[in-house]
C-alpha cells in the first residue's frame, strides 16, 4: 500500500497561513458580530434593570470571554490548555500575574466571574468598550484629570467589593513581555494590592504569547503548544504586619521567577 504523499512545502506554508487567517477572522467575527448578536442586548438589559450593575457587567463579560475561549480551543486545537482548577474558585482576592499576550487579561476574565482590573486610561474613552469597562467597575491606570473621581470611587469601594467575593487582578509588569522573561514590576499595581489588605495570589502564565504573539496581527495556529496558568504563591497580609512594597515586590518576583531575587530595574 502506498504511503501518503508528503505535502509540498509551498502548499504547507499556504495552508498554515490560511489557517492563521481563518482563525483570526473567526475570532474577530466573534468579537464583533458575536458581541452584537449574543451579548449587546444583555448588557443593555443589565444597564437598565440590574440592581447590581457592576456585578452583572462583570458576569456578562466573563461569559463573553468564556465563549471566546471555547471557540478558540475548537479552532486552534494544536494549543493545549492547562489551567489550574483552583483559579475559578478564587474570591475576595487580589491576583497578580505575569503578562505575555493580549489574551492574558481576557483569559483571567473568562475564569473569574467577579473580576475588576486596571485598564489603560485611554481605553475608557473608546466608544462601547469604554462604556463596558466603566460599568464593570474597572480602574483607570491614571487618576489624573477627569479620571480622578472615578479612581477615588473605585478605591473607596474596593474593600466592600473584595469582602463581597470580588477579585481584583493586575499585571504588575504593566505591559506584555517581549521575550517571555518577567520584567520590572510596576509598584502602582502592588500598591493597590497592598492597600486592599486581601490575600494576594500570584499566578504564573506561560504559552499565550505563542498563540497570539505581541506585535503580530494573526493568531499562530501551527504550533504544538501548551498554555498553562498556575497558582504559584499566596501572600497573606496580616493586620499590623503588612509587607512593605519592597518586600511584596521581592516575594512576587521570587514566586514568578524562582531563584531571581533582584528586580531588574
Amino acid at each position: 500500500m502506498a504511503g501518503r504523499q508528503p505535502r509540498s512545502p509551498v502548499f504547507a506554508r499556504w495552508s498554515d497561513r490560511l489557517s492563521d487567517v481563518g482563525v483570526t477572522l473567526i475570532c474577530w467575527a466573534y468579537f464583533t458580530l458575536g458581541f452584537v448578536v449574543f451579548f449587546s442586548h444583555r448588557y443593555v438589559f443589565a444597564y437598565l434593570f440590574s440592581r447590581q450593575r457592576e456585578t452583572a457587567f462583570q458576569r456578562l463579560t466573563s461569559r463573553f470571554y468564556q465563549g471566546f475561549f471555547r471557540l478558540l480551543r475548537c479552532i486552534a486545537p494544536r494549543h493545549h490548555w492547562r489551567i489550574d482548577e483552583r483559579i475559578a474558585g478564587l474570591s475576595s482576592s487580589v491576583i497578580v500575574c505575569n503578562h505575555l499576550s493580549y489574551l492574558d487579561p481576557i483569559l483571567l476574565i473568562s475564569l473569574l466571574e467577579r473580576q475588576k482590573t486596571i485598564v489603560k486610561t485611554k481605553f475608557f474613552r473608546v466608544p462601547i468598550f469604554g462604556w463596558l469597562i466603566r460599568n464593570a467597575g474597572y480602574f483607570p491606570a491614571d487618576g489624573e484629570g477627569a479620571f480622578g473621581g472615578m479612581m477615588i470611587d473605585q478605591v473607596g469601594r474596593m474593600n466592600d467589593y473584595l469582602a463581597g467575593g470580588g477579585n481584583l487582578f493586575v499585571f504588575p509588569e504593566g505591559t506584555r513581555s517581549r521575550d517571555g522573561a518577567v520584567g520590572p514590576l510596576n509598584r502602582g499595581a502592588l500598591k493597590i494590592a497592598r492597600l486592599c489588605r486581601a490575600p494576594i495570589y500570584v499566578l504564573h502564565l506561560a504559552g499565550t504569547e505563542k498563540l497570539f504573539t505581541p506585535g503580530k496581527f494573526f493568531f499562530n495556529t501551527r504550533l504544538n503548544n501548551t498554555i498553562s496558568l498556575t497558582i504559584v504563591d499566596r501572600i497573606d497580609q496580616e493586620p499590623g504586619r503588612e509587607l512593605s512594597l519592597a518586600e511584596l515586590e521581592h516575594r512576587i518576583r521570587q514566586a514568578l521567577v524562582p531563584g531571581d531575587f533582584e528586580p531588574a530595574r
Partner: peptide
C-alpha cells in the same frame, strides 16, 4: 494616584474629619 488616595485617608485621620469627594478630587 493610588498613593494620593492612601495619603488622603491619612490626612482625614490627621484632621479628624472626612473630606468630600470634591475636596479629594482636588488632591489628585
Amino acid at each position: 494616584s493610588i498613593d494620593a488616595i492612601e495619603l488622603l485617608g491619612k490626612i482625614e485621620l490627621m484632621l479628624g474629619f472626612s473630606l468630600s469627594r470634591e475636596e479629594k478630587e482636588k488632591a489628585m
